[in-house]
Design a protein around this nucleic acid. Structure first.
Lengths: 363, 363
DNA sequence: TTCTCACGTGAATCTGTAG
DNA sequence: ACTACAGATTCACGTGAGA
């Protein structure tokens, strides 16, 4: 069997290109397919600026059926091209990930984990109509149910997570700043460029040095850049010449890391923020309970959503604290107290209690 | 139409029971369906070495098909039973959530968010073969694509998250300790009892007091307990008599919160509308008074009918505000200010004054 | 040089009601 | 069904100008 050509970007339709690749030839597939967003009209921010939406031609499908056919086609080709011990990652949002996951199961892939990418800086929901869409989902699946020899670098992952098992929820910022590729006018070159940190974790977790990684939706080549950096090989398929060119230029500049560099890559943890509402939801305080200032001469009532009430004033622990002191600001955590059998204690105590029960949450 | 019986647990097969419920009668469905594809026997055989690959594949396909048929059946009945402005939540793990999500989309439900429940204390992966499975996924969906009047208590959620929009990732501990129902031997009564805190957030976010919540997989009644506590009604369907009995006993002990404690931050959209003209009619402003933008460099004159004039432009506070900023839209209540002895104040202050005096008249 | 602050922007299924 | 219009609505972070 001749060696397959690697570290290359193949221009053309991804399904056509896949059909030309030999069976059982790659170790890992990473796929970031179109999400099939179904947007209405324009969306304006509160300051009346327009949101730059993903309305590209490649993300438009007639119907769920069309999208499903497309998904089945590229995915079954990937399955053929994968080695028997190989695995596949697919990333998506709620628009497409359920269809992707169901099709992948139906094709016989065996899901190993679903992984949540928590965005530390997501775009808000400008109209106040839903929860802030603050995550995307990745599915990690072995080629088949019988594949038990997929690669998982358990210890590397544990090391990267302060000696705790790596969990299924990962926190990374969006791809911004210098990492984000821009054209000569400073406009983003690709609407959906993924952060390299995300790809590095995927690659460190599920490949060995020298492995071949296939990305059928290569875009501007984040997978290739991360692969080269980490001493893996890649094959990228991309339809748009402009993206393929950018990807080649980008990857040419990447300097592979030394083994010593790889060892120092860890992730830091920070203290989780605890909203006051969660103290109430958890039952540490109950709606109707009273809070007091340190001397006890002012009191406020807790409501179910974590707001406080005094007379006809209502708001957050901070706002209500500031209002009754006529102060510009107030730290509600230290201002407000709750009754214990030993007297009044600041509600910050409850926050610390909550934190310690959540202590395993790493970044 | 006779009122539907609420605050009750109906014993029997969930699909049969659903068929007896009237159409368009409930406000919310919360469903925690079986995860493991083991419905009424075994859908998925344990891995069996004597079965060859082809048979195995057929077997697997057949299993998913059975699960999909079951899912389609209960879900389309739920869709029928929902009011047009109603919504549904489904919780699941990677074993079933992709099939659930895809079917729900195919049935015409319109996904509003997928929500990640991050477990603060998940069970570790003992064999070190995968990432710690540390989350479950909830899907929140409106009955149909056109339903824009689903309930979302944006302000209550924002309040519960320290004045920041609530995100799509929620962190709660597993249901343990006193909250976990045990039998007389101290063994957990139900294998997948959900934490009440999770249900409280679901209910606070997406229902109004008095709403009817249907749970077709009631189990030991977490949904009913949270609903009763928060002043909502429930209908629980449960197949196992033992669970239904436990649920009834559990819910009987729940003490509902008082109305005052249940009150949450309301949205501005639900407050009574005050036309600007009414501010002028009431004398809070007078025809001929000047209004200013926040920095004071633009001004407009108030006319008797509540219109504003600048030069030869005239119109509503919103129209004129938008025109002079060349903006597509403008909220005149916050854009325009009037002079007070302490400087400029937004005319929204006058609207609030008017609202509170109207509220006193009504009382 | 270093700090502050205004400004821009990211895979988005993003309004409600009266007539 | 449609149109018209009132009016509600944003978090984290990087950049760059100016103090």
């Amino acid at each position: 069997m001749g060696a397959i050509a690697t570290n290359t970007v193949i221009l053309g339709d991804c399904i056509e290109s896949l059909k030309k690749l030999p069976s059982k030839s790659v170790d890992l597939v990473f796929a970031d397919p179109p999400y099939n967003l179904q947007l209405g009209g324009d969306l304006l921010r509160p300051d009346n600026s327009k949101v730059d939406a993903v309305d590209d031609e490649w993300d438009r499908f007639d119907s769920f059926e069309t999208y499903d056919r497309f998904t089945t086609a590229w995915m079954s080709e990937c399955q053929r091209v994968l080695k028997d011990d190989g695995a596949m990652w697919v990333i998506g949002s709620y628009h497409n990930i359920f269809r992707v996951g169901a099709i992948l199961q139906t094709l016989g892939f065996w899901i190993l984990n679903d992984i949540v990418w928590r965005k530390s800086n997501p775009m808000p929901n400008f109209k106040g109509t839903r929860f802030t869409n603050a995550h995307e989902t990745l599915i990690w699946a072995a080629k088949g149910r019988g594949s038990r020899r997929y690669t998982f670098n358990y210890d590397a992952m544990k090391m990267a997570n302060d000696d705790l098992q790596m969990r299924s929820d990962w926190t990374f910022p969006l791809c911004t700043g210098d990492e984000r590729l821009k054209d000569e006018n400073g406009v983003k070159a690709h609407p959906t460029q993924k952060p390299e940190a995300l790809l590095r974790r995927v690659i460190l977790a599920s490949t060995k040095p020298g492995d071949i990684i296939l990305d059928p939706f290569f875009g501007t080549g984040t997978t290739g850049a991360a692969a080269k950096q980490l001493g893996r090989k890649f094959i990228g398929l991309e339809r748009e010449e402009q993206y393929a060119t950018l990807a080649r230029e980008r990857i040419a500049k990447v300097v592979p890391l030394t083994e010593a560099d790889l060892e120092t890559m860890g992730s830091k943890r920070s203290e989780p923020r605890i909203p006051f509402g969660q103290i109430v939801e958890s039952g540490l305080l109950r709606p109707g309970d009273m809070l007091y200032c340190s001397k006890g001469e002012r009191s406020a009532r807790v409501r179910a959503d974590g707001s406080l009430v005094i007379g006809d004033m209502a708001g957050s622990i901070h706002k209500v604290g500031a209002m009754i002191q006529s102060a510009p600001a107030c730290n509600g955590w230290t201002y407000w107290h709750f009754k214990t059998d030993k007297g009044l204690a600041p509600i910050d105590v409850l926050r610390m209690k909550m934190r310690s029960s959540l202590a395993q949450l790493a970044a």
